[in-house]
Amino acid sequence: MQLIVNGEAKELEARTIQDVINHFGLEGRPVVVEAGGEIITKDQWLDMEVRPLMKIELVHFVGGG
């Protein structure tokens, strides 16, 4: 289905947030997920289902002052 991931339209096979994480090869990395404006904690990734055109943000810490 089509999802808006980090501001870009992406076509991918995914049912849950965990599938999205796996799709981008982010397993085991320190990722924070926001979907549909809500923060999705790691223990919710397997259960949280994605919807077509859902806005998903995958963020992490980078260098900064």
């Binding site: 980090n6 501001g7 320190p30 980078v62």
Partner: peptide, 17 residues
Amino acid sequence: FAIRRINLASTEDDSIL
């Protein structure tokens, strides 16, 4: 630190952590 979107085009782990 700062918080930014992960670069999905790159497979490299650029997390500062």
